[in-house]
Protein backbone atom coordinates (compact mmCIF):
# COMPACT_ATOMS: atom_id res chain seq x y z
CA UNK A 1 0.00 0.00 0.00
CA UNK A 2 1.51 3.35 -0.96
CA UNK A 3 -0.06 6.51 0.34
CA UNK A 4 0.63 9.94 -1.13
CA UNK A 5 3.83 11.76 -0.23
CA UNK A 6 1.92 14.44 1.64
CA UNK A 7 0.21 11.88 3.85
CA UNK A 8 3.41 10.00 4.56
CA UNK A 9 5.26 13.16 5.57
CA UNK A 10 2.46 14.47 7.74
CA UNK A 11 1.51 11.10 9.24
CA UNK A 12 3.71 11.38 12.37
CA UNK A 13 2.08 14.69 13.17
CA UNK A 14 -1.34 13.23 12.42
CA UNK A 15 -0.55 10.44 14.89
CA UNK A 16 0.82 12.46 17.81
CA UNK A 17 -1.49 15.46 17.62
CA UNK A 18 -4.69 13.40 17.98
CA UNK A 19 -3.01 11.34 20.70
CA UNK A 20 -2.17 14.47 22.70
CA UNK A 21 -5.62 15.88 22.12
CA UNK A 22 -7.18 12.57 23.16
CA UNK A 23 -5.37 12.65 26.50
CA UNK A 24 -6.59 16.19 27.08
CA UNK A 25 -10.15 15.13 26.25
CA UNK A 26 -9.84 12.10 28.53
CA UNK A 27 -8.85 14.23 31.54
CA UNK A 28 -11.29 17.01 30.73
CA UNK A 29 -14.07 14.43 30.78
CA UNK A 30 -14.02 14.60 34.57
CA UNK A 31 -16.45 17.46 34.85
CA UNK A 32 -16.91 18.72 31.32
CA UNK A 33 -17.77 17.20 27.94
CA UNK A 34 -15.17 14.62 27.00
CA UNK A 35 -14.12 11.36 28.55
CA UNK A 36 -12.63 8.00 27.77
CA UNK A 37 -14.85 7.07 24.89
CA UNK A 38 -14.39 10.13 22.74
CA UNK A 39 -10.72 10.31 23.75
CA UNK A 40 -10.20 6.74 22.64
CA UNK A 41 -11.85 7.47 19.31
CA UNK A 42 -9.55 10.47 18.78
CA UNK A 43 -6.51 8.34 19.52
CA UNK A 44 -7.91 5.73 17.16
CA UNK A 45 -8.09 8.35 14.41
CA UNK A 46 -4.38 8.97 14.88
CA UNK A 47 -3.65 5.27 14.55
CA UNK A 48 -5.80 5.03 11.44
CA UNK A 49 -3.81 7.85 9.82
CA UNK A 50 -0.64 6.00 10.67
CA UNK A 51 -1.98 2.76 9.21
CA UNK A 52 -3.11 4.43 6.00
CA UNK A 53 0.24 6.15 5.55
CA UNK A 54 2.57 3.25 6.40
CA UNK A 55 0.45 0.11 6.19
CA UNK A 56 -0.98 -2.26 8.77
CA UNK A 57 2.24 -4.02 9.80
CA UNK A 58 4.16 -0.91 10.99
CA UNK A 59 1.11 0.17 12.96
CA UNK A 60 0.96 -3.21 14.67
CA UNK A 61 4.65 -2.79 15.50
CA UNK A 62 3.97 0.67 16.88
CA UNK A 63 1.30 -0.73 19.18
CA UNK A 64 3.69 -3.44 20.47
CA UNK A 65 0.88 -5.48 22.06
CA UNK A 66 -1.84 -7.08 19.97
CA UNK A 67 -4.81 -4.72 19.58
CA UNK A 68 -7.10 -7.23 21.30
CA UNK A 69 -4.79 -7.16 24.32
CA UNK A 70 -5.50 -3.44 24.62
CA UNK A 71 -9.21 -4.24 24.75
CA UNK A 72 -8.56 -6.83 27.46
CA UNK A 73 -6.37 -4.51 29.56
CA UNK A 74 -8.89 -1.70 29.26
CA UNK A 75 -11.80 -3.91 30.26
CA UNK A 76 -9.87 -5.25 33.26
CA UNK A 77 -8.90 -1.72 34.34
CA UNK A 78 -12.49 -0.50 34.11
CA UNK A 79 -13.76 -3.55 35.97
CA UNK A 80 -11.09 -3.09 38.66
CA UNK A 81 -12.09 0.54 39.21
CA UNK A 82 -15.34 -0.68 40.77
CA UNK A 83 -13.69 -3.07 43.20
CA UNK A 84 -12.57 -0.60 45.94
CA UNK A 85 -16.21 0.33 46.51
CA UNK A 86 -16.96 -3.23 47.57
CA UNK A 87 -14.88 -2.72 50.72
CA UNK A 88 -17.57 -0.88 52.57
CA UNK A 89 -18.32 2.16 50.44
CA UNK A 90 -21.37 0.83 48.66
CA UNK A 91 -22.44 -1.17 45.62
CA UNK A 92 -20.09 -2.14 42.83
CA UNK A 93 -18.81 0.80 40.76
CA UNK A 94 -19.54 3.38 43.46
CA UNK A 95 -16.65 5.70 42.78
CA UNK A 96 -14.41 6.96 45.53
CA UNK A 97 -12.66 10.32 45.67
CA UNK A 98 -9.45 11.43 47.22
CA UNK A 99 -8.31 15.04 47.45
CA UNK A 100 -4.59 15.14 48.27
CA UNK A 101 -3.25 18.64 48.97
CA UNK A 102 0.11 19.07 47.19
CA UNK A 103 0.27 22.82 46.87
CA UNK A 104 -3.00 22.66 44.97
CA UNK A 105 -5.87 20.28 45.78
CA UNK A 106 -5.87 17.45 43.26
CA UNK A 107 -9.26 15.85 42.70
CA UNK A 108 -8.44 12.18 42.22
CA UNK A 109 -11.07 9.50 41.94
CA UNK A 110 -11.52 5.92 40.84
CA UNK A 111 -13.57 7.33 37.95
CA UNK A 112 -10.35 8.18 36.15
CA UNK A 113 -9.41 4.51 36.24
CA UNK A 114 -12.74 3.63 34.71
CA UNK A 115 -12.36 6.29 32.03
CA UNK A 116 -8.81 5.23 31.27
CA UNK A 117 -10.08 1.67 30.91
CA UNK A 118 -12.72 2.81 28.45
CA UNK A 119 -10.09 4.83 26.59
CA UNK A 120 -7.74 1.86 26.20
CA UNK A 121 -10.59 -0.45 25.20
CA UNK A 122 -11.80 1.93 22.53
CA UNK A 123 -8.28 2.39 21.14
CA UNK A 124 -7.90 -1.39 21.05
CA UNK A 125 -11.26 -1.91 19.39
CA UNK A 126 -10.68 0.72 16.72
CA UNK A 127 -7.25 -0.72 15.99
CA UNK A 128 -8.56 -4.30 15.88
CA UNK A 129 -11.37 -3.46 13.50
CA UNK A 130 -9.44 -1.15 11.23
CA UNK A 131 -6.28 -3.22 10.97
CA UNK A 132 -8.12 -6.46 10.29
CA UNK A 133 -10.31 -4.81 7.65
CA UNK A 134 -7.18 -3.37 6.08
CA UNK A 135 -5.42 -6.73 6.02
CA UNK A 136 -8.54 -8.42 4.68
CA UNK A 137 -8.41 -6.03 1.75
CA UNK A 138 -4.79 -6.59 0.86
CA UNK A 139 -4.88 -10.39 1.17
Amino acid sequence: MSASLILRVSAPMLLWLPLAASLYVLLRGHNEPGGGFIGGLLAGVGLIFHAIAFGAAPTRKLLRLAPTSYCAIGVLLAAASGIPALFGAGPYLTHLWWFPDVGIVLPLGTTILFDAGVYITVVGTVATLFLSLMEEETL
Partner: peptide
Protein backbone atom coordinates in the same frame (compact mmCIF):
# COMPACT_ATOMS: atom_id res chain seq x y z
CA UNK B 1 -17.31 -10.08 36.69
CA UNK B 2 -16.30 -13.73 36.30
CA UNK B 3 -16.93 -14.07 32.54
CA UNK B 4 -15.70 -10.50 31.96
CA UNK B 5 -12.37 -11.16 33.63
CA UNK B 6 -12.15 -14.61 32.00
CA UNK B 7 -12.70 -13.10 28.56
CA UNK B 8 -10.10 -10.40 29.17
CA UNK B 9 -7.53 -12.77 30.64
CA UNK B 10 -7.89 -15.37 27.90
CA UNK B 11 -7.57 -12.58 25.34
CA UNK B 12 -4.34 -11.49 27.01
CA UNK B 13 -2.99 -15.05 27.05
CA UNK B 14 -3.18 -15.20 23.29
Amino acid sequence: LIPLCAAALTALLR
